[in-house]
């Protein structure tokens, strides 16, 4: 059974609420993609050159990237030739199978934060400017507060105007503890204070917000390494999780971002934000392909509830299959 039929069956049998939400939230951006695939299915009875070109267009326009797109299409083409499959629907299944398998082969699949057994679990959130770090932190805090964890926010973005106030407002809304520092103070020292407090009060989860930085700014990336070292000084092994936030509108530079951040701080996850917009976020597939970092969550709006676990099946389902 191909993946598509597998998924179709799975989803039609049990009306999973999670999937409902998920596909609904993504529907706007996904519809585009699935409509295209469906219209392809209708347009072509048998696959031909033109069909593959359109397939290429769909993937590239989803920001999957030329390299990965061409590779996937080559693989599908090969399989089509080898097994003499020319039926469009079947080919689509093979395509989706490939995307699915490629992702699964690249490493583990995780969503929720992995909590340590003793002492605070530390989550560091990094990314370029304006991708949604602070908002995602608020959403994650909400998620774990709802699960009964004690959460502490650390406002280590002491650089951007209004950044500290922004996190403070979220902390108030969430009724969540927060540590801030003066404007332009050393981000590491704010983190130090936060972690010390967390240790003393035995907080479950500490989430550290840092200033957005473009990955080609060496001094800012150095600052991040320093921050990491300071964190580890207070709590060895920490940060236990480091999430890179990627904006769904990001193009091919997303892979460059992931590589650069991975160099200064080991990434344990990617969160893709703004999936409620019209962008397809295909860059996460390219990032997974190159670095193997699992996508943990997706952001579907500006409110603190607009966060969902990333679920590959749903993602691909939403991406390719008629709703």
């Amino acid at each position: 059974m191909g993946l598509i039929s597998f998924l179709k069956e799975k989803f039609s049998k049990k009306k999973d609420e999670k999937v409902e939400n998920y596909t609904e939230g993504m529907s706007k951006s996904r519809q585009n993609f699935s409509n295209k695939l469906n219209s392809l299915t209708k347009k072509y009875k048998k696959v031909n050159q033109e069909y593959f070109e359109e397939l290429e267009e769909i993937l590239i326009e989803s920001d999957v990237g030329v390299k990965l797109t061409l590779r996937v299409i080559d693989e599908v083409l090969e399989e089509s030739k080898k097994n003499k499959i020319y039926d469009v629907e079947e080919i689509n299944e093979i395509l989706i199978d490939h995307i699915f398998k490629d992702y699964m082969d690249k490493g583990e699949q995780l969503t929720d934060v992995r909590f340590v057994n003793n002492g605070p679990t530390v989550l560091l959130v990094v990314g370029v400017n304006g991708v949604g770090k602070t908002t995602t932190i608020a959403k994650l805090a909400k998620r774990y507060i709802d699960k009964g964890k004690s959460v502490l926010l650390v406002a280590s973005d002491t650089f951007r105007a209004g950044a500290s106030e922004q996190l403070q407002i979220w902390a108030n809304r969430l009724n969540c503890d927060i540590v801030t520092g003066p404007y332009n103070s050393d981000p590491s020292s704010v983190a130090y204070d936060g972690l010390t407090k967390a240790k003393k009060e035995n907080i479950d989860l500490v989430i550290i917000d840092v200033a957005g930085r473009l990955q080609n700014k060496t001094n800012l990336m150095d600052e991040l390494s320093k921050l990491r070292r300071v964190i580890a000084k207070v709590i060895p092994e920490a940060p236990h999780e480091t999430f890179l936030i990627i904006d769904a509108t990001t193009g091919q530079n997303g892979v460059v971002q992931a590589k650069a951040f991975a160099e200064v701080t080991e990434l344990t996850g990617v969160v893709i934000t703004k999936m409620d917009g019209t962008s397809k976020g295909g860059i996460i597939l390219a990032i997974r392909d190159e670095l193997g970092v699992p996508v943990r969550f997706i952001g579907l709006g500006e409110k603190m509830d607009d966060l969902k676990e990333f679920d590959l099946e749903s993602y691909i389902y939403g991406l390719c299959v008629e709703k």
Binding site: L214, T249, T250, G251, N253
Partner: peptide
């Protein structure tokens, strides 16, 4: 660093508002 969808976004804003110009941000990246 916008990807492929940038053009749809620009079209949507332009259709609604008749833009007079674009500012490209983050070109220091």
């Amino acid at each position: 660093m916008s990807g492929q969808d940038a053009v749809n976004v620009a079209n949507a804003f332009n259709d609604l508002l008749s833009l007079t110009g674009i500012i490209m941000s983050k070109l220091d990246g």
